[in-house]
Design a protein around this nucleic acid. Sequence first.
DNA 1: ACACTATTCCATGAAACATTGGAGGATGCG
DNA 2: CGCATCCTCCAATGTTTCATGGAATAGTGT
Lengths: 218, 218
Amino acid sequence: MGDPANKATLFDALARVGKALGSGKRLELLDLLAQGERSVEHLATAAGLGLTTCSAHLQALRQAGLVATRRDGTKIHYRLAGPDVAALYALLRDVAGARNAEAAAARDAYLGPADTEAVDRDELRRRLAAGDVIAVDVRPAEEYAAGHIPGAVSIPLDQLAERITELPADVEVVAYCRGAYCVLSHEAVRLLTDHGRPAVRLADGMLEWRRDQLPIVA
Amino acid sequence: MGDPANKATLFDALARVGKALGSGKRLELLDLLAQGERSVEHLATAAGLGLTTCSAHLQALRQAGLVATRRDGTKIHYRLAGPDVAALYALLRDVAGARNAEAAAARDAYLGPADTEAVDRDELRRRLAAGDVIAVDVRPAEEYAAGHIPGAVSIPLDQLAERITELPADVEVVAYCRGAYCVLSHEAVRLLTDHGRPAVRLADGMLEWRRDQLPIVA
DNA sequence: ACACTATTCCATGAAACATTGGAGGATGCG
DNA sequence: CGCATCCTCCAATGTTTCATGGAATAGTGT
């Protein structure tokens, strides 16, 4: 015990998990899996990867112990190995955003201008309880089905323009999506305000909602 | 905004931080830096690295934004960029230990048999307040000086055998070290009990103490 | 058994990384 | 100013990782 060889083995083992976090594509897969389990093919198209490439990345994540699989017929569904994995991903994202100027710039470029108003989770819960806002989940329907904020309605962003009439015109909308680094709610609020609807976005999303163990409807 | 190119840029930027965590040597450096700032030369010898190799790894960490530097004469001292970096390292370590069988095995091999009794932080603080234990910091004196548990005395492990008489024979000792994955307190407790002294170890160490923002004397 | 689907395994070339030794830059001291 | 110290930068090496296409595998339906 305590000898340098074992020490190197230990740190190398930890590094295998670190290495799994060392590829943009793998982080993108984790980002998707944080919203619910998915088949390999679905992940490949959602992340813009070749099927074999996607499978290889998933194997890397599985060997690190970050994801687990479930077989359903011919399909294999991947999911995060546990909530701690989502927490690790979220913390990596936050540290990168806070400490790495390049990452912060890339985030701002991706999310677009800070032209939309945001509310935090506490305020959303308070105003939902008071009944003076309506929460809209703008993620793909599949992700809504895998778990969403109690009371939220599902209108995926790509259907929002045509289904905007489903929303009452005089109640403020709070749009939310995958997390603080997800662009969907930003675009949803822009679309709604362009149509003259009162709308704000939740400052983060389901990733942080789950991490902080707030109530979820599945 | 929101287009695939920006998305890839964002995830690649996050991956740069992940990559920094993808080497055992760099994790070892972070482990050391979590205890306080250090010069390059000190880090190189402590981690068993060549000077240029160590410098290169530190550059990688610095480019990721995880560490910062301070110049003092000809020496350059590295430190963690912030407490969130220590939290990220701790979480990576915990996730690896919980989800990766290989990492768990390496940890157990490094720390040795589970033959020593541990107390948690709450119990240590309670018993320190009651005055019925003495806390001994068995890390190198330098790390004690950089911050330690209030009331603890410093006896580095490599001096413990010769300085054991400094400890009262009838008061139980609680030994602590760097963190849950540090071997020093395990070996200290074995040494003390071999000498017939009542001793237990703190289940984790300064890494977790700092993370949870408990009081520190520097 | 057969074809079919979804996924993994394998081989390959291209790109990125780690390590090492030596040159070069900044600082302090006599 | 000249020299010593500490560290970083550069170039060259061997190693690892990545993306991709084709073959192999596991399960499903006829």
